[in-house]
Amino acid sequence: MRLGLDYAGGRPGGGAIAAAGYTFVVRYLSDGGPGLPGKLLTPAEADDLRANNIDIVSNWETTASRMLDGYDAGARDAQAARAQALACGGSAERPIYFSADFDATPAQQIPIDDYLRGAGSVLHPSNVGIYGGYWPVSRALDHGTARWAWQTGAWSGGNTDSRINLYQRIGFVRVGGVQCDVNEARTDDFGQWSKTSKGGEMQLTDTLTDAYGNPVTVGDILKWISFHADLTVDELGGPGSRTALPPDQKMTGHPALGGRTIVGAIAEIGQALKLPGFDPGRA
């Protein structure tokens, strides 16, 4: 069984985590509140974790009962969470868990489910996860509002849902001087960034989902990039004028695009499939 950590009061460092025998972390994406400065995953921390072969899993958490704010809150949080994950080298194709960090009642499941549906409207429902005790986690899985589940031993009454991907043990350890929770991976794919949706290296025939929920293959993306050799900064979704990218930034060829891997190129162009005029059939 793979064991990992989650932590909010500091950053133990990838070397200390690896030395302690843990192989992954669940790291927080947040709105940046000042109370816990070590809570938010940073690009530098993500680089350090990867350099020490520590897998990263995404969780969005602000206030404990944020999910009670419903659909619109879920959509806003998912947009912010995805942007932060991408800034740290994550992928839009990997799930994000959202926290119900309290003992939720059955009546509170209604806004919790609405929140998760809002998150799914941004991320796609297949990339939405929930963190919480046994009952809200099980209800979300039953209702189909979450496809990934990280259950905590707290608020669970000794019950464990057999469908969960991660289980957070009760109690703490100290790693690198930081108090951490210990987590068990209950499935091979539990949302770690190093996995693709198919559990291995991306192939030309693998399917991604565009910003509108339409399936498009990696091969389609590469053909489209090759077809549009004068791709501009605006078309990439970034700021600036409609000046063509410098030649050394053009991504051509396979399996590397200008020195970038397929996965890296897709991450770099971000949500490339929502670009105006994208049409896989055109290539």
Results as ranks from 00 to 15, higher is better:
Leu236Tyr: 03
Leu236Ser: 13
Leu236Ala: 15
Gly237Cys: 15
Gly237Arg: 09
Gly237Gln: 11
Gly237Met: 15
Gly238Asn: 12
Gly238Cys: 11
Gly238Ala: 15
Gly238Lys: 11
Gly238Leu: 15
Pro239Gln: 11
Pro239Asn: 15
Pro239Cys: 13
Pro239Glu: 15
Pro239Asp: 15
Gly240Pro: 13
Gly240Lys: 15
Gly240Trp: 13
Gly240Leu: 14
Gly240Met: 15
Gly240Phe: 14
Ser241Thr: 15
Ser241Phe: 12
Ser241Gln: 12
Ser241Trp: 07
Ser241Ile: 04
Arg242Gln: 15
Arg242Trp: 08
Arg242Val: 13
Thr243Phe: 10
Thr243Cys: 03
Thr243Asp: 14
Ala244Leu: 10
Ala244His: 00
Ala244Glu: 09
Ala244Cys: 09
Ala244Arg: 07
Leu245Met: 10
Leu245Asp: 01
Leu245Thr: 02
Leu245Ala: 08
Leu245Trp: 00
Leu245Gly: 01
Pro246Arg: 09
Pro246Leu: 02
Pro246Tyr: 03
Pro246Lys: 06
Pro246Asp: 04
Pro247Trp: 10
Pro247Lys: 10
Pro247Val: 10
Pro247Ser: 14
Pro247Asp: 14
Asp248Leu: 08
Asp248Thr: 04
Asp248His: 14
Asp248Gly: 08
Asp248Lys: 06
Asp248Ser: 13
Gln249His: 04
Gln249Lys: 08
Gln249Gly: 03
Gln249Val: 03
Gln249Met: 06
Gln249Trp: 05
Lys250Thr: 10
Lys250Ser: 06
Lys250Trp: 05
Lys250His: 10
Met251Gln: 06
Met251Ser: 01
Met251Arg: 08
Met251Asn: 06
Met251Thr: 05
Thr252Trp: 07
Thr252His: 11
Thr252Arg: 14
Thr252Phe: 09
Thr252Glu: 04
Gly253Arg: 02
Gly253Tyr: 05
Gly253Glu: 04
His254Thr: 12
His254Asp: 12
His254Phe: 13
Pro255Asp: 06
Ala256Phe: 06
Ala256Met: 10
Ala256Thr: 14
Ala256Ile: 08
Ala256Asp: 11
Ala256Cys: 11
Leu257Gly: 07
Leu257Ile: 14
Leu257Met: 12
Leu257Phe: 08
Leu257His: 06
Leu257Tyr: 01
Leu257Pro: 14
Leu257Cys: 11
Gly258Pro: 05
Gly258Cys: 03
Gly258Phe: 05
Gly258Tyr: 06
Gly259Asp: 09
Gly259Pro: 14
Gly259Cys: 12
Gly259Thr: 12
Arg260Gln: 11
Arg260Lys: 00
Arg260Val: 07
Thr261Gly: 07
Thr261Arg: 03
Thr261Val: 08
Ile262Lys: 01
Ile262Asn: 04
Ile262His: 07
Ile262Cys: 07
Ile262Pro: 03
Ile262Val: 14
Ile262Asp: 01
Val263Arg: 13
Val263Ala: 12
Val263Ile: 06
Val263Asn: 00
Gly264Met: 04
Gly264Asn: 05
Gly264Gln: 11
Gly264Cys: 08
Gly264Arg: 05
Ala265Phe: 09
Ala265Gly: 07
Ile266Phe: 02
Ile266Leu: 07
Ile266Met: 02
Ile266Ala: 00
Ile266Tyr: 06
Ala267Asn: 08
Ala267Glu: 10
Ala267Gly: 11
Ala267Tyr: 03
Ala267Pro: 02
Ala267Trp: 05
Ala267Thr: 09
Ala267Met: 03
Glu268Arg: 07
Glu268Phe: 10
Glu268Ala: 09
Glu268Ile: 01
Glu268Tyr: 04
Glu268Gln: 01
Glu268Leu: 09
Ile269Tyr: 00
Ile269Thr: 03
Ile269Cys: 05
